[in-house]
């Protein structure tokens, strides 16, 4: 078990290195931060000085190696745009994004899984068909459109929920939370629904499809033939057998929720990492963008590790003796 985790973490090292390389290369070759920082009026001497100060005169791989080495120590350099350490910037923005992503994931799972089970068991019921039609909207409408529609209905017409920002936030030394105030919770609703809706409907449709498959299986028929109760069959035997693919997809989707909250954060002006990333792209702020991508890759690796461990817990056939 321990060896398994260690081997997984070791496998993750090259992944993170390669993602870092790609991120750094991509951003280093698109856009020139120097001209953006200097504006329109500067002398050649000023330009050369700035290039030297940012270390851009060194060979690319040296720059990359320095970047990764510093990253290993939690240093991602100084933001070109804000002239502040990237680590501080990300740490400031992280609570907003993580709280949003957590709420969206809980929403997606707590509603998606039961609805998938329900529509799988009562697949011909009228209510199931209604759910399925609504889920089509969820999987097919783009996120920004859902966000704008929600703002239109709940902020403009009904005026019950705020349309932007985090609302009232309680600050701690290293964390700021919107969970503790009514205003913060209210501000969380629309962005979380927007962010989680696609995942919710995807998980629901996946659980439903898996349930339909499992409910036809011989072991469910045999469980019925042994007279087991409906609840034991549906939740004990059927749902658990649908979990392996559901965990896979849910894991990837939760990673996606955090990584790609960019659109939602932009629509709702949510002061999280996604919004920081978008603002950094506009001025080619390489350290921020590269740091963000490296962080996301670490996050995906962690999520995949958790997913692997969950497989292990759910399915005895995967507990291979090593």
């Amino acid at each position: 078990m321990f060896a398994f985790i260690v081997s997984r973490v070791l496998q993750a090292v090259p992944v993170v290195l390669v993602v870092g390389l790609i991120a750094y290369a991509m951003f280093a070759f698109v856009g020139d931060p120097v001209t953006i920082m200097l504006g329109t009026d500067y002398t050649e001497a000023q330009r050369v000085a700035l290039v030297k100060q940012l270390g851009l005169d060194q060979p690319f791989f040296v720059q990359y190696a320095k970047f990764m080495w510093a990253a290993l120590h939690g240093e991602f350099g100084i933001s070109y745009r804000l002239a502040r350490p990237v680590t501080d910037l990300l740490a400031e923005r992280m609570p907003a994004t993580l709280e949003l992503a957590l709420t969206a994931s809980v929403f997606a799972l707590l509603i998606g899984v039961p609805m998938g089970v329900y529509t799988g068991i009562y697949r011909t019921a009228f209510s199931s068909r209604v759910f399925m039609i609504f889920s089509l909207i969820g999987v097919s409408l783009p996120t920004f459109l859902i966000g704008i529609l929600l703002i239109l209905v709940f902020s403009v017409w009904l005026q019950v929920l705020p349309s932007f920002g985090r609302g009232d936030v309680v600050r701690f030394p290293h964390w700021s939370t919107g969970f503790l105030t009514t205003g913060g919770l209210k501000a969380l609703i629309l962005p979380a629904v927007t962010l989680g809706l696609f995942q919710m409907t995807l998980i629901m449709r996946l659980v439903r499809a898996e349930m339909l498959e499992v409910l036809r299986s011989d072991y469910i028929k045999f469980a019925r033939a042994r007279g087991l109760g409906t609840r034991a069959i549906n939740f004990g035997h059927a749902l658990r057998n649908t979990l392996v693919p559901v965990i896979t997809i849910a894991g990837l989707q939760i990673g996606g929720i955090i990584a790609f909250s960019i659109v939602t954060e932009t629509v709702f002006q949510w002061p999280g990492m996604g919004l920081l990333f978008v603002q950094s792209v506009q001025v080619a702020d390489v350290p921020v963008m590269a740091a963000y991508l490296v962080m996301i890759s670490v996050l995906f690796v962690l999520i995949n590790l958790v997913v692997d461990l969950l497989y292990y817990a759910v399915d005895p056939r995967l507990r291979v003796v090593r």
């Binding site: 045999f222 033939a225 042994r226 035997h237 005895p316």
Partner: peptide, 25 residues
């Protein structure tokens, strides 16, 4: 009828590879 199944009428199916739930001992 559920209370009769198993309790009064037992059933054995064809393929033992698929009639047992793989996730439970």
């Amino acid at each position: 009828m559920r209370r009769i199944r198993g309790k009064q009428i037992g059933a054995i199916f064809q393929d033992p590879l698929t009639t047992l739930n793989p996730l439970y001992s």
